[in-house]
Each structure stands twice: as structure tokens, then as C-alpha cells.
């Protein structure tokens, strides 16, 4: 019996502004979790700080609401210690691409089997709408005293160059489309990244529902195949994805930009070094026997014999 979306709703009142795009992301997650029938006990939603940081509290799976910018390394520890868990990260643009951008890049380099959902609303909502790293230079949403003086990062291009092996963009007000992306990202073995365009109803009077409605189009409606099935397709598909990531003004593409199905995940790399890793990862290992360490005096000397000298 598949769990229904409603079964993933927690009892916590959702305190986002009515009409916020975050509701669309949450709705897509409920639907995706339901369709994948994720076990709440084996699923962990990890978040950073800000409006998106509250997401785990609204979902009836495990939830870890961490520090500003640090959701990725928290999630990494959880996943590597217990790789059987499905770990999803929700973070804002300020969180993942501002204070936490170093971790964002590092996760791409590692290709750990994690899914990132970036709530991109171009502002820092909970601290009154300052410009985020994704707000273009020269723009001045109502909340800013002066136009933004810094350039924006391109999240898709950054993810591509960092090594993410699943990269997509969704729109929070197109929930079934976003749901499909989330499902694909979770099912992908490796670091998956979804940028979600999410209007901030209170602070951003530029990137409104109307704004996106006019611009957003689905890549899959045209002849677009982003999937790397063989290693020699990588360069070509990555370059095409990179070119596509530059398209952001008059028209904004959504859908999967790039997926590398040939990449080796970090967990598989650890497994190559430690053959027992996947079946007996750190979280599942027994470390004591009746309150005593499993290494006794004899075992100790065998393990560390390099350090022990027999006196003549």
C-alpha cells in the first residue's frame, strides 16, 4: 500500500506567507515522496536557515534543521554514516550559494548520493529581503534601498562545473513537473541538484508569478536529451547544458539540464576501499560486546604491531 501525499504532512502549522512559492515545493515533495513510497524512518530532510530551513518540520519524515549554509555537510555525515538513508537537502539561495557555497562545490566534487532542492527566490526573506547571490546586478526589488551592486551566480552552470551528476530546474508553481524532477533526483545515484524558481510574495516584486508565467518553458517539449548513457557523451552533453544554462532572460528553461548515469558515487568509491562499507556502514557496526570494546589486548597488538617493539 503506497503512502498518500497527505501522510507526509506533519502537524506543524506552516508559517510561510500565504501564496509563497515554498508551498509549491512542499507540495511537490509530498507528491514525490508518496509516488516513491519513501519510508519516513529511512528518509531524512536536512535544511539550512531561512524560510526554506523550516521545510523539514512540515514533513513527516526525519528532519534535521541545521546551521546557515551547512545543510550539505550535515547531510554528508548522515548519508556516509548510514548510506541506506534517503537524504534530501532543502536550502535557500543565500544559504546554499552565499554562506554555504564552498560546501555546494565540495558536494559536486564528491558526488555523494544526496538530493539538493534549492529554493531560489533571489532574496533573503527572513531578514527582510536583502539581495541574494542569485539576484542580478542592477535589479532593485522593493525591499532593497539601492539596486543590487553584485553580480549573480548561475546555479546551473556552477553545479555543472562542480561535478553534480544530476542537474535540473523546476518552477514552484508547476508542481507536477517539479515532482517529477524531485523523483528523478532522488532516484539518481549521485549528487543531484534542482534549482527551483520560487517567487517571494513579500519582498520580490520583480520575480513574481506573472514574471515566471511569461518566461518559463519546458525543455522536454523540444528535442532535448540531457542524459549521459556512455562516458564519451559527457563532454558534448555538458557543453550543451552549459549553453542552455545561459538562457535566463526572455525565456527560462525548466527540466533536466544534465544527468550523468556513468559516474561513480562517493559511496561506491568508499566501498571500493572498504568492501564491507555498504552492508556494514558506520551507523550499523557493533562497537561493543557486553560493554567492552571488540578489540581486546591480543587484537590490539595484532592491529598495531607496527608500533610495538619486543624488548630484547
Amino acid at each position: 500500500m503506497v503512502r498518500k501525499p497527505v501522510e507526509y504532512q506533519s502537524d506543524v502549522w506552516v508559517d510561510w506567507c500565504p501564496g509563497c512559492g515554498d508551498f509549491g515545493i512542499l507540495a511537490s515533495m509530498y507528491r514525490a515522496f508518496s509516488e516513491l513510497d519513501l519510508s519516513p524512518e529511512k528518509t531524512v530532510v536536512v535544511s539550512g536557515i531561512g524560510c526554506s530551513g523550516k521545510t523539514p518540520h512540515f514533513i513527516k519524515t526525519n528532519g534535521v534543521h541545521t546551521l546557515h549554509g551547512r545543510a550539505i555537510p550535515f547531510a554528508m555525515g548522515i548519508k556516509l554514516a548510514n548510506p541506506e538513508l534517503t537524504v534530501i537537502i532543502n536550502g535557500g539561495d543565500g544559504d546554499l550559494l552565499g554562506i554555504g557555497i564552498g560546501h555546494f562545490i565540495a558536494l559536486g566534487r564528491r558526488n555523494i548520493d544526496l538530493t539538493i532542492i534549492l529554493h531560489n527566490n533571489t532574496v533573503y526573506g527572513l531578514t527582510k529581503g536583502q539581495a541574494s547571490p542569485t539576484l542580478k546586478r542592477g535589479l532593485k526589488p522593493k525591499s532593497l534601498p539601492k539596486p543590487n551592486i553584485q553580480d549573480a551566480v548561475n546555479p546551473i552552470a556552477l553545479a555543472l562545473s562542480s561535478g553534480y551528476t544530476f542537474i535540473a530546474r523546476g518552477y514552484s508553481m508547476m508542481v507536477d513537473h517539479l515532482k517529477e524532477l524531485i523523483k528523478k533526483a532522488i532516484q539518481h545515484k549521485g549528487a543531484a541538484f534542482i534549482e527551483v524558481l520560487q517567487p517571494c510574495i513579500t519582498y520580490d516584486n520583480i520575480h513574481t508569478v506573472e514574471y515566471y508565467k511569461k518566461r518559463v518553458y519546458k525543455m522536454e517539449d523540444s528535442d532535448w536529451n540531457p542524459i549521459v548513457e556512455k562516458i564519451d557523451e559527457r563532454e558534448d552533453k555538458m557543453l550543451k547544458a552549459l549553453a542552455k544554462s545561459m538562457e535566463y532572460d526572455e525565456k527560462i528553461p525548466i527540466g533536466v539540464f544534465y544527468q550523468d548515469k556513468c559516474a561513480v558515487s562517493f559511496e561506491e568509491r568508499i566501498h571500493e576501499r572498504i568492501p564491507t562499507y555498504l552492508e556494514n556502514p558506520p551507523a550499523k557496526q557493533k562497537i561493543e560486546q557486553d560493554g567492552r570494546p571488540i578489540i581486546d589486548n591480543i587484537t590490539f597488538k595484532k592491529i598495531f604491531n607496527q608500533y610495538i617493539v619486543e624488548v630484547e
Binding site: V14, F23, G24, A27, S28, Y30, R31, M174, V175
Partner: peptide, 15 residues
Amino acid sequence: EKGFLYCVECNKPIY
């Protein structure tokens, strides 16, 4: 399409 509505009287999202 949007995945949610909002009930003004209950202050709750509808999914």
C-alpha cells in the same frame, strides 16, 4: 497545477 491553495479562514495550505 500549483500544488497548493490557501484557506484564509483556517490559515492553512490545502494540498
